[in-house]
Design a protein around this nucleic acid. Structure first.
Length: 290
DNA sequence: CGGGCCTCCTGAATGC
DNA sequence: TGCATTCAGGAGGCCC
């Protein structure tokens, strides 16, 4: 599942391969891939053709190609999306949803492959936001914890006001972006907090400690992901290196906690799963389980 | 309006 | 063996 580190690996790869190049023929092979583009498929293709790519940017789990038209190609990978740089003669992937030929020579193309079709592409104007530019559709997405502009004091204040629990808050992309179910559970384990703890009960130093671990787990994942891709292959691979070695709780129900050997617990949360160590991550008295 | 739940989707894994 | 059910989850939308 692509979260911030996986999306950053894709952003970096795309930046190297498409920045400075011009988009040629665009094909949409599955309507659902452009369902959030307001103008429909033909308009989507028209806004991309012959546009030069000025750079590739990211905020949280959203990434975009800034175009010389003042618009951006915005991408969200959803659950299973990939953006691949391929030679056109390579056979199409089973779940290929859209492709962009690059340059007149047409030696390279960007392919959007997405099995579960939760991901999407759209073209949108870039708008100013606090000294940087962001596609208007992604304006509501908060700064992520690896951005220099990330305001930890503001996030701590918002958490203090919020009437919710800490795991829900970590997953709210309008409060803090880039964190999904996997890294939420991993960061909470590292800082020994239970996801069900009320946001209002956290003191400022709890939040500081949590943010240290959020950044640490993301940087560890980024380091692992950054080593596993060859240069003509821009990938999102939820099952590669890091996920085998680096996860301490996610997907490890019944396996011993790396700190105390207590079996990791899985519990239902928001129609999905949470993983934690019952001993390392106690819920304070009076708090309800997530 | 804030908070939280439902829904979209496919394929692997599981159950009977 | 084969068909049906369950599970995975990002985030927009909707409801209270």
């Amino acid at each position: 599942m692509p979260e911030l580190p996986e999306v950053e690996v894709v952003r970096h790869g795309l930046d190297q391969w498409v920045t400075g190049r011009t988009i040629g023929v665009v094909s949409v092979l599955h309507q659902r891939a452009v369902r959030r583009h307001a103008g429909g498929q033909a308009d989507f293709c028209a806004r991309l053709s012959d546009r030069r790519v000025a750079g590739v940017f990211r905020r949280g789990k959203y990434l975009w190609l800034a175009l010389d038209s003042g618009e951006a190609l915005l991408a969200h990978l959803g659950m299973s999306g990939q953006l691949l740089v391929q030679r056109p003669q390579q056979s199409p992937e089973r779940h290929l949803r859209a492709l962009l030929r690059l340059d007149a020579s047409a030696e390279t193309e960007v392919r959007f492959v997405d099995q579960r079709t939760f991901g999407h592409l759209l073209v949108d104007p870039l708008v100013a936001d606090g000294g940087t530019w962001v596609p208007s559709t992604a304006r509501h997405i908060a700064r992520d914890p690896l951005e220099p502009e990330f305001d930890e004091d503001a996030v701590a204040a918002a958490l203090a006001r919020r009437r919710s629990d800490i795991k829900r808050a970590l997953l709210d992309q309008s409060l803090i972006s880039g964190i999904g179910n996997i890294y939420a559970d991993e960061a909470l384990w590292r800082v020994r907090l239970h996801g069900g703890q009320h946001t209002g009960s956290l003191c400022r130093s709890d939040v500081a400690d949590l943010m240290v671990e959020v950044r640490a787990v993301m940087r560890d994942a980024l380091a692992a992901g950054g080593t596993s891709f060859d240069e003509l292959y821009v990938n999102v691979n939820g099952e590669s290196g890091y996920f085998e070695r680096g996860l301490n709780v996610y997907g490890r129900e019944g396996l011993p906690c790396a700190r105390c050997a207590t079996p990791i617990r899985r519990s239902a949360f928001m129609n999905r799963s949470s993983y934690d160590c019952p001993r390392c991550q106690p819920l304070p008295d009076g708090a309800k389980p997530a």
